[in-house]
Design a protein around this nucleic acid. Structure first.
Length: 286
DNA sequence: ATGGCCGCGCGTCGCGGA
């Protein structure tokens, strides 16, 4: 029996958070919870500043698309998890798509790629940093809805070509009231408003499954906590980072959890990583 | 305790984040 772990983490500046990232990857490995694929969001750096070498020394190949100050996404894959035919950057990241086709955007928010593993059949990864939206009624909110509509169309096409698909990232949407620390205070606001939740449901309507809700979870599990007002200490958070999986992956998905540990460290990201485990009977591509 | 943040940039406050 072999396992594959796929994670998402908004690091809120990779420059500041690289030590946390390396420490977390190492800690996971030490705990027999090695991360095989990691989608990162909010790199906040240009491509020339991406820490390719440091991550390579940690055993990971990197696909990334950054910009100055804002946004930026990456997909990391553990080299040792890839088949022997996919051992360098050019062969590891196949069928790369940068941003949403047909959606003109100067913000770097989406990477899609296909990975070929030793442990299991190929998997399509779509890593997104969904727009924040600021507040309903603003231009940024309109942009968020347009981005979501374009993504919805893109995912329809992707599912036709890639039955084994994970749509992961910082969705900036808390899908249900149970994903919000104080639902009454947040009614109609950004991250929980009806149109945003409507788009989240529309992804489920395509057959995607919220991996987190496949399993019994303790109440009040969140993935983001505001830096202000002692959000983390009060567990005043939201669950806005998600891994949606296609039906073909549902049967082998055996766990999904938020790892709060890195949020407790000094100078943390305001988001915690979320991890899914895929369990396969045996190796298929030795 | 009802309120306190953080990262970035030709910056020393304003913006964006969520």
């Amino acid at each position: 029996m072999s396992e594959l772990r796929i994670a998402t983490w908004n690091v809120n500046s990779l420059k500041v958070r690289l030590p946390h990232l390396l420490k977390w990857l190492e800690a996971c490995q030490k705990n027999q919870q090695t991360i095989d694929v990691l989608g990162l969001q909010e790199l906040k750096l240009t491509d020339d500043k991406f820490p390719v070498e440091e991550l390579a020394r940690a055993g990971y190949l990197s696909l990334f698309m950054g910009q100055k100050t804002y946004n930026g996404v990456a997909v990391l894959v553990r080299q040792a998890s890839l088949t022997h035919l996919n051992q360098d950057v050019d062969t590891a990241f196949l069928q790369v798509q940068k941003n949403i086709p047909g959606f003109v955007d100067d913000q770097q928010r989406l990477l899609a790629t296909t990975l070929h593993f030793k442990q299991t059949q190929p998997i399509r990864i779509i890593c997104g940093y969904f727009p924040n939206g600021q507040a309903p009624g603003t231009e940024k909110f309109d942009y968020k809805l347009k981005w979501l509509e374009a993504l919805h169309q893109f995912v329809i096409t992707e599912l036709q070509h890639h039955p084994r698909l994970v749509l992961l990232g910082d969705y900036n949407i808390a899908p249900q009231d149970e994903d919000v620390h104080d639902p009454a205070a947040w009614v109609g606001q950004n991250l929980v408003s009806e149109p945003e939740r409507g788009f989240f449901q529309s992804f489920l309507g395509l057959g995607l499954i919220d991996s987190f809700r496949m399993f019994t979870q303790a109440p009040k599990i969140f993935s983001w906590w505001d830096y202000r007002m002692m959000g983390f200490r009060r567990n005043a958070g939201m669950r806005i980072d998600h891994l949606l999986i296609s039906p073909a992956l549902k049967a082998i998905c055996s766990a999904c959890h938020v790892d709060k540990e890195p949020r407790k460290w000094e100078q943390p990201s305001d988001h915690a990583p979320v991890v899914i485990t895929l369990t396969q009977e045996e190796s298929v591509n030795p």
